[in-house]
Amino acid sequence: MTDATAAIEARGLGKRYGHRWALTDCTLTVPAGHVVGLVGPNGAGKTTLISLATGMLAPTTGTVEVLGARPTSGPRQLARVGYVAQETPTYAGLSVADHLRLGAHLNPRWDAGLARRRIEQLGMDLKQKAGNLSGGQRAQLALTLALAKRPELLILDEPIASLDPLARREFLQVLMDATAEQEFSVVMSSHQVADLERVGDYLIVLIDSRVQVAGEVDHLVATHHLLTGPRRDRAGLPANQQVITDSHTGRQSTFLVRSDEPIIDPAWTVSPVSLEDIVLGYMGHSSARSADIKMLGARR
């Protein structure tokens, strides 16, 4: 894994629209061979990062490489990357069959058999216009097109955000089935952290263009702990326990800490944390810090 080419490698990547920076100085490595969840609050730069990685946008500063090449280096590169944009867009006036024909014409590695088989499994009518499909079916059609492209990397921008729970589950079932069969890398931005905990095996938390934490899901869950016990100051914790969040009442303290070593202090009740707790912890951590900065500014 050490010398494997990264799925996405960004260095000092930035994008400015007029006076507003949508992404600033973003440096991150998305490893290949994983299903990577990209999470962060709205405006963190996730969609901008994805648009830069797919070559839909050109960077203002820095560089981005996808599977070891520039996103805009040519048709060969475009064929290697599947992309499902936000809201899983399809052409409302075209039928399902038209979409498959379009896919066959536009993609050199198109797998017509795979596309037909997936559409059959989904029970979709080839003659139906995409505009008349349900939200879940439309998302499935967009996913089928991306899968039939036979990509080495599949990038999905909030694919399940607008779907009901059943359609969401069905979408992820197809995605996982295809991942097991085709062995490509997946990068998926989402707010549904509970879903990412099942389908993802690697997580990146992006806040204000910065990577707050990145790592394999099992490792993140195993190294974050919730400590509750008698009131204690942040400074009273050992150096190998990085405090993500803390809250205190008159008698009790609660800490979310990251530590590679087991917590042995008997004063603490140690509870395991879910991936969602971890993500929310980092988001809270960063908003508390920016609030501190604002308060300092106000005092001056």
Binding site: M176, T179, E181, R198, V199
Partner: peptide
Amino acid sequence: KDVAGSLAVNPN
């Protein structure tokens, strides 16, 4: 593949 597809869980 069956478990991944039916539970919507990562094959790894």
